[in-house]
């Protein structure tokens, strides 16, 4: 009996030990993916390598990622800009990016927050959870901000390889990066990435299945958002809110849209922040500018970015950054 248990434990131990190098190997190569998960790995790599150190950061969801071109802002403002927009996520995980960013990079001077109607809602599913795989082992921040989702179990954060069990797609992606490294072509330009596509039927499908949609802000996320604003104030980081263009017909679909927008307007007034709202902008009125209700086509995002940066200048927001730190 003892012999059996001892041998089993030795075998088990050796198997577990071997998981460390395998885990490292998979993570190392998975991080190289550019196309997979709309290039989120590229952004995380830049964050963890501490190579961003931008003056201006853009936070938000895919609307931030695809609507605000970092390069246009950079050229116009003559300051370094990086877009940290994270696909499909609300503020809970946008804040995680902020925390991780500050661990490795210098504090920004200015933050642009791209507002979404569902930004303060709580998602239960961990959308695009694979983006955390290479970075999450023993990472307390990722554990703190993702463990409340229906995503990973405790063991996956603290035991090597457990999170890769059954992750065939991610493992295949890692191996693909070894065998065909040049196949990956998607490149997020300082975090920005947008697609040139025709209007799709997402909105029609939504209308067919739902009468309306309602945002349900989550109290914990609201507290976190306020904490973030306070933190920015303490760190002397300037903040601007922007509501990027949204197709006008789709705006009617959200039942409590006015309440959510006025909530952010109130905060901006209370905190003395600018809120640039493009909901009623000419761009929002033409369906041809959009892929779906919330996302502009790539060419229009470039037009919007130019417009946005000139508005920023007009509002004297960014130009007023203190250059001393």
């Amino acid at each position: 009996m003892k012999k059996f248990i001892l041998k089993f434990l030795i075998f088990f131990f050796l198997v577990c030990l071997s998981f460390f190098p395998i885990d490292y190997f998979i993570s190392y190569h998975l991080k190289k993916s550019k196309c997979y998960l709309i290039g989120e790995y590229g952004v995380w790599n830049d964050i963890y390598s501490g190579s961003i150190n931008a003056d201006i950061l853009i936070f938000g969801s895919s609307r931030a990622r695809s609507h605000i071109c970092s390069k246009i802002l950079e050229d116009s403002l003559n300051r370094s800009v990086y877009n940290l927009g994270i696909e499909g996520q609300n503020f809970w995980l946008q804040y995680l990016r902020y925390k991780e960013y500050l661990k490795k990079n210098k504090c920004p001077k200015f933050i642009i927050i791209s507002i979404d109607l569902w930004m303060l809602d709580k998602r239960t599913d961990l959308y695009n959870y694979q983006q955390f795989l290479p970075y999450m082992l023993f990472n307390k921040n990722i554990f703190d901000y993702t463990s409340s989702y229906d995503g990973f179990s405790f063991f996956e954060y603290f035991f090597p390889m457990v999170r890769y069990i059954g992750e065939r797609e991610a493992i295949s992606e890692a191996f693909k990066n070894i065998v065909y490294p040049s196949v990956d072509t998607l490149h997020r330009e300082k975090g920005y990435y947008a697609k040139e596509m025709a209007w799709n039927d997402d909105f029609d499908k939504a209308k067919a299945s739902l009468r309306y949609w309602e945002s349900k802000p989550d109290s914990a996320t609201v507290v976190l958002f306020n904490k973030f604003l306070l933190d920015c104030k303490e760190k002397n980081i300037g903040v601007v809110f922007v509501y990027t263009p949204e197709y006008i017909e789709g705006q009617k679909f959200t039942k409590n849209r006015a309440d959510i927008i006025s909530y952010f307007e109130d905060i901006s007034k209370d905190e003395g922040l600018s809120f640039l709202d493009y909901s009623a902008d000419e761009m929002s009125k033409d369906r041809n500018n959009f892929i779906n209700v919330s996302h502009l086509t790539r060419s229009k995002t470039l037009v919007f970015s130019r417009k946005f940066v000139s508005d920023l200048k007009r509002h004297n927001e960014i130009t007023g950054i203190d250059n001393s730190n």
Partner: peptide, 14 residues
Amino acid sequence: YYVLILFILYFAGE
């Protein structure tokens, strides 16, 4: 046995 285990882990999941 180890290779079998790796196969199982790779194909496991749901």
